[in-house]
């Protein structure tokens, strides 16, 4: 299974980025093979719609699950419609998050954890 984890850096020992839409990077891990790649999240500095744009990128990368600390209403909406499940990890490395995920120990996020942030226009 391909899992996308919001990350503060490009390697697997980086700390999970607490933000979804504004995450600096995503690390996509294949949980069967352990292979992973880092993606520069271009949406992180958009004035608005960062969550939705990030969600689009996750879909295009063929991810089947997402791990982050928080997720806003737009991204949650897209994830739900795309059938991608979201799990919560906080204050740990990407590697630790994937280990917990593999053991089924991460809690699923079912509701947006923030009300969203308004971008300027």
């Amino acid at each position: 299974m391909r899992v996308a984890i919001s990350s503060t850096g490009t390697d697997i020992d980086s700390i999970v980025d607490e933000r979804f839409g504004r995450a600096r990077y995503f690390i996509i891990v294949d949980t069967e093979t352990g292979e992973h790649e880092a993606i520069d999240n271009e949406a992180y500095q958009l004035s608005g719609g960062a969550g939705a744009k990030t969600a689009q990128m996750i879909i295009e990368k063929g991810s089947e699950a997402v791990i982050s600390s928080n997720i806003g209403p737009n991204a949650m909406d897209v994830m739900e419609k795309a059938g991608i499940r979201v799990y919560r990890a906080y204050n740990m490395s990407v590697k630790e998050a994937v280990d917990l995920f593999n053991k089924g120990l991460l809690q699923e996020i079912l509701q947006p954890t923030s009300k969203g942030h308004h971008g300027g226009i």
């Binding site: 969550g51 969600a55 879909i59 295009e60 419609k81 795309a82």
Partner: peptide, 10 residues
């Protein structure tokens, strides 16, 4: 779309 208002779900 610069604003993320259209999402291609496939």
């Amino acid at each position: 779309c610069r604003f993320g208002a259209l999402i291609n779900l496939g």
